[in-house]
Simulated scan of single mutants.
Amino acid sequence: MENTIEITKEYITLGQLLKEAGVIDTGGMAKIFLLEYTVFVNKEQDQRRGRKLYPGDVVEIEGAGVFEIASSSN
């Protein structure tokens, strides 16, 4: 099952996505989370919390699910 994360800006970082998706409580937890769990961005493993995610990107987070980035229609 895919979840959609809508963004109003050009991009969101991987760390922001983790917080927005409810995977972590604070941005500071992103670094530790990414060291302990496998994350794939568009089917390629990526552990950089500053990785820019744009509409259309698909992020698979171990233990949390699959998230698609979408542009908010504001």
Rank of each mutant, 00 (worst) to 15 (best):
I7F: 06
A21V: 08
F33W: 02
I12E: 10
Q47E: 11
F40A: 10
E6A: 14
R49P: 00
E10W: 01
G56Y: 13
L14P: 15
N3L: 04
T13Y: 10
V66Y: 03
E20W: 01
I7A: 04
P55F: 06
I61W: 09
L14E: 11
V41P: 14
Y11T: 09
G50A: 05
R49V: 00
T13A: 11
R51M: 03
Q16H: 06
D46L: 07
S73C: 10
A70T: 09
I24H: 09
I32Q: 11
L18T: 00
T26E: 08
D57E: 09
E36N: 09
I24A: 09
Q45F: 00
M1H: 06
V39D: 00
E20R: 09
T38F: 05
R51P: 03
E6S: 10
A64K: 07
P55W: 14
F67D: 01
P55K: 14
R48Y: 02
Q47M: 11
V39Y: 00
I7E: 05
T13L: 13
G65C: 08
Q45I: 03
Y54T: 15
G56V: 07
K9T: 08
A70Q: 14
I12R: 09
R48I: 00
V39I: 13
R48E: 04
T26S: 15
A70R: 15
D57P: 12
F67Y: 12
S71Q: 06
T8H: 07
D57Q: 13
I5H: 04
G50Q: 09
S73D: 11
G15M: 07
A70V: 13
Q16W: 03
N42E: 05
G22A: 06
T38Q: 15
F40R: 12
I61C: 11
V39M: 05
L35V: 01
V39P: 05
Q47F: 08
D25Y: 03
G28R: 04
T13C: 13
I32D: 12
N42G: 14
I24E: 02
G56H: 13
G15Y: 02
N3A: 08
F33Y: 10
I12T: 12
D25I: 07
E10Y: 01
V39F: 02
G27K: 04
L17I: 01
A21N: 06
E68D: 07
T38D: 15
K52E: 05
E60N: 15
V41A: 13
I69Q: 12
E6Y: 10
N42S: 12
E44M: 13
E36I: 00
A70H: 10
E2D: 12
V23Q: 07
L14Y: 13
S73A: 14
V23P: 06
T38V: 13
T4Y: 11
R48F: 01
V58C: 12
I5D: 01
L34A: 07
A30I: 03
R51C: 01
I5Y: 08
A21F: 09
R48T: 02
L53F: 12
